[in-house]
Write a protein that binds this DNA or RNA. Structure first.
Ligand SMILES: [Zn+2]
Ligand SMILES: [Zn+2]
Ligand SMILES: [Zn+2]
Ligand SMILES: [Zn+2]
Lengths: 130, 130
DNA sequence: AAAAATATCGCAACAATGTTGCGATTTAAT
DNA sequence: ATTAAATCGCAACATTGTTGCGATATTTTT
């Protein structure tokens, strides 16, 4: 396994995540970075951060992909089994760290990862009475 | 609401779904149609079929999007709350009609749709001892 | 059956997102 | 300071999905 390095770009990306309450898409990250580095570099940084279990990927029903910081980084077995919420109005995606689905699988499947995304209206947009 | 029509292309797409045991991507459908119609037409047919609750969309963690026939088409309230399984080896995606997650949401969220996709190894690939 | 209305289609053009190769640069270890 | 390896920028490409518009096909009306 390669050893990852700390670079200016990587630090900048991490700061963007630190500042954000919600999950971020590649494009949103790029905008906030303000030209600090190339588009491709961001993709590569995101990949490294995922390998290092520092961020995780969230894939939404509409096909959009976002990333969020893991705030449980140092567990022995690192699994993202929490749910995510995607607001159809403001398009924000947030981690619901405390929402974990329970389910019963048929035999003969080996489950390694789950992706549980709920969509609808977030508290903000619900109150705005859309 | 527009009234949808039955066209050659639409019928052909439906036949492809009928023949398939697993969910299909736009590209896979296109290949099976063998040039019967344009790429764009397939997108438009898929959209119509989704509006008519004949197929549903499945979005995978790796960002790929597939479609599958609904085999519960004539319920009053049409919701896809079943899980899907995505095999990391053969990349097949199948509906697990009987697997439905239970979960507890915080207040103030209005959930309209869920997307629950599990990934790992399907029975076929598990037996092949990968 | 012919005419009118409208849903669908094909094509071309575009946009967004993600990937790859490679030489140049930066980082971390010696 | 030297060296090895990871990272970067750039250009080029691939894939996926969208839009506009004139042409075609289907359905409804007359
Ligand atoms: Zn919202
Ligand atoms: Zn999360
Ligand atoms: Zn498989
Ligand atoms: Zn399904």
């Amino acid at each position: 396994m390669k050893k990852t390095r700390n670079t200016t770009a990587k630090t900048a990306v991490l700061e963007v995540f630190e500042k954000s309450r919600t999950a971020l898409s590649h494009t949103e990250i790029q905008k906030q970075l303000n030209g600090i580095c190339d588009r491709v570099t961001i993709y590569r940084i995101l990949e490294r951060l995922m390998n290092d279990d520092i961020i995780h990927k969230i894939s939404n029903l509409d096909g959009t992909v976002k990333y969020a910081k893991c705030n449980h980084s140092h567990q022995r077995v690192h699994i993202h089994n929490h749910a995510h919420f995607s607001c159809e109005n403001c398009h924000e995606i947030t981690c619901l760290e405390n929402v974990k689905p329970s389910y019963i699988m048929p035999h003969n499947y080996k489950v390694k990862e789950i992706n549980f995304t709920l969509s609808g209206l977030c508290p903000n947009c619900l109150n705005s009475n859309i």
